[in-house]
């Protein structure tokens, strides 16, 4: 497994990777809580971006409704915690099948009935909208008034219940991101990964070669949905409040696909790099606007939009493919 993990990566790349990881593990000892929160945001977006990338970047299926899976994961685990006292780690075991099952339903409907491309993207939006309206009327988890997890001032970290200080959340999401990276790396190099890429590039040709496109697209959706739901569990326990209007809003779905697109769709480092760029720039701009006293709602989103526009026009393949060529690192796409 280790051999497969490092295969195709240059020595220089490996050293850089090890240094980066060591740096990330040590960093909470040197920075304040604000910066840790920014880092949490970065890895949160890197993680969901990585999960979304399995569907779009690997198998070529554009989902614009991924907030659905985040929301399902968040609500499943939060409901278990609040109503039954079941902790988040068990909650994850419940969230993955819930999100995966719904992903399977959507995938089945879409792929069986030949819904593809833009139509597929709109179908995913439709289901996310269903969930938004549905949860608005779902009283058991608070409906439109919101659903809240009990909060207190924590002096000790309770990892089992995910109650504690930002640094604990940082290590959890860092762990998620690293795990997602390794899983994606292995998936991409697996037989199935090559099937996915064949489907992405030319589905009729892939099918002519005997690849069961329906089956592999289904697997991609289910894995992506299940992985995204983990981010939802994290979201619920980190923010402690859930509103259907926010969690399932289409802007959430768009927000989480920005990082992989800016970083590079279909690449492994793309989602991570994209998250660093976006969150870093947006926090910097937030500070600058704050200092200038022009801190208006919407300014940040305008900036997001401009970033997206610039990247899609100037570097349509994303920043990572360009950067890795510049740095002389090899990453085969």
């Amino acid at each position: 497994m280790i051999a497969r993990l490092i295969e195709g990566t240059s020595r220089r790349g490996l050293v850089l990777l090890a240094l980066l990881l060591a740096f990330l593990i040590l960093i909470p000892f040197f920075v304040n809580d604000y910066l840790i929160t920014v880092l949490i945001l970065i890895f949160y977006f890197a993680f969901v971006g990585q999960a979304w990338n399995i569907m779009m970047g690997f198998a070529g299926q554009l989902s614009l409704g991924h907030a659905l899976y985040v929301g399902l994961g968040a609500y499943t685990s939060a409901a278990l915690y609040v109503h039954f006292g079941v902790g988040p780690w068990i909650g994850m075991l419940a969230a993955i099948p819930v999100a995966g099952a719904l992903g399977a339903v959507i995938g089945f409907l879409a792929f069986r009935f030949g819904v593809s491309g833009v139509y597929f993207a709109i179908l995913t939006i439709a289901f996310c909208e269903f969930a938004r309206v549905g949860f608005d009327h779902f009283r058991w988890v608070g409906g439109s008034a919101g659903f809240f997890l009990p909060v207190a001032q924590y002096s000790v970290n309770d990892l089992w219940n995910l109650r504690g200080k930002p640094s604990m959340f940082y290590y959890v999401i860092l762990g998620f991101t690293v795990a997602a990276f390794i899983i994606c790396h292995l998936l991409l190099r697996s037989r199935m990964g090559y099937f996915w890429q064949a489907i992405r590039e030319d589905e009729p040709a892939a099918r002519a070669l005997g690849i069961n496109a329906f089956r592999y697209k289904m697997i991609a959706v289910v894995i992506s949905a299940g992985m995204t739901s983990l981010a939802g569990v994290f979201f619920a326990f980190f923010y402690n409040n859930l509103f259907p209007e926010q969690v399932f809003h289409i802007s959430r779905s768009i927000e989480m696909i920005l990082a992989p697109i800016i970083g590079g769709v279909g690449t492994l480092f793309g989602p991570i790099l994209g998250a660093v760029i976006l969150t870093g720039l947006s926090e910097t701009m937030h500070e600058i606007l704050h200092l200038l006293g022009v801190d208006v709602p919407g300014a940040k989103a305008v900036f997001y939009g401009i970033c997206l526009l610039v990247v899609i026009v100037a570097l349509p393949d994303g920043v990572w493919p360009w950067l890795s060529r510049r740095l002389g690192l090899s990453e085969r796409k």
Partner: peptide, 14 residues
């Protein structure tokens, strides 16, 4: 298709 889509999403967000 997805690139056109994203281009217009960016315009919409702005």
């Amino acid at each position: 298709e997805h690139m056109q889509f994203i281009l217009l999403v960016a315009v919409a967000v702005i």
